[in-house]
């Protein structure tokens, strides 16, 4: 019985040491885990920015395509009208030439419609980005749960995350605030002696 108790205490001691060691290791990884999880909201914001950028670009291509389609429709109508006049005055050769031009215009209309439908890529990209954002948010929620469960507190400000991911995120953030507009670029170029179009010098 005594031997049994000694063995039990020994086993329990071993288990306690193992648990303490495990908790220490978890605490060690806690700080980088907290810091990394702090990056996730920024990363998701950039992903959503990506959606907005592709949407804006797609809308602009659509606007221009629609202008071309409307112009084509007007030209086709005009060509048909002129061709019928030429037919009436027996200028068949010219009427045929106009007919061929109208056919080519019709082919271009098809290409324009293909451009429009090809732009549906934006919808597919946006849907995938939304799914990625959901995944990232889920990962973040789980990391927060771990932080709470293991009491992994971050003392003071979160340390800057090192490595490729941290650097890329910093670049993305910087591109928001430091991206310069053309006017500002021209201004700076002028200051360094570059002649700008429209400038008097």
């Amino acid at each position: 019985m005594l031997n049994g108790n000694v063995k039990l205490y020994s086993e329990l001691g071993e288990l306690a040491r193992y648990l303490e060691s495990a908790m220490r290791k978890i605490a060690e990884v806690g700080a980088p885990m907290v810091a990394n999880s702090a990056q996730l909201p920024q990363a998701t914001a950039h992903l959503l920015d990506l959606n907005k950028m592709t949407e804006d670009g797609t809308m602009e291509v659509m606007r221009l395509t629609e202008i071309l389609q409307d112009n084509h429709a007007r030209v086709a109508k005009e060509l048909a009208s002129v061709a019928s006049i030429l037919e009436a005055v027996d200028c068949r050769t010219l009427a045929e030439r106009l007919g061929k031009t109208a056919q080519e215009l019709g082919q271009d209309d098809k290409h324009l419609m293909d451009i429009m439908t090809a732009l549906s890529f934006q919808d597919l990209v946006a849907q995938r980005v939304k799914k990625l954002v959901t995944i990232v948010e889920d990962v973040q929620r789980k990391l927060v749960e771990l932080v709470v469960v293991f009491g992994l507190k971050q003392e003071g400000a979160a340390p800057e995350v090192q490595g490729k991911a941290g650097e890329m995120l910093r670049q993305l953030e910087a591109s928001k605030s430091t991206a310069i507009k053309q006017e500002l670029a021209d201004e700076l170029l002028s200051e360094f002696g570059f002649k700008q179009s429209g400038s008097s010098g």
Partner: peptide, 17 residues
């Protein structure tokens, strides 16, 4: 019916054509 404005515009354009 689509939550993406780009898709609505594409379908609307095709319908018009």
């Amino acid at each position: 019916v689509d939550d993406m404005s780009t898709m609505r515009r594409i379908v609307k354009n095709i319908m018009k054509q």
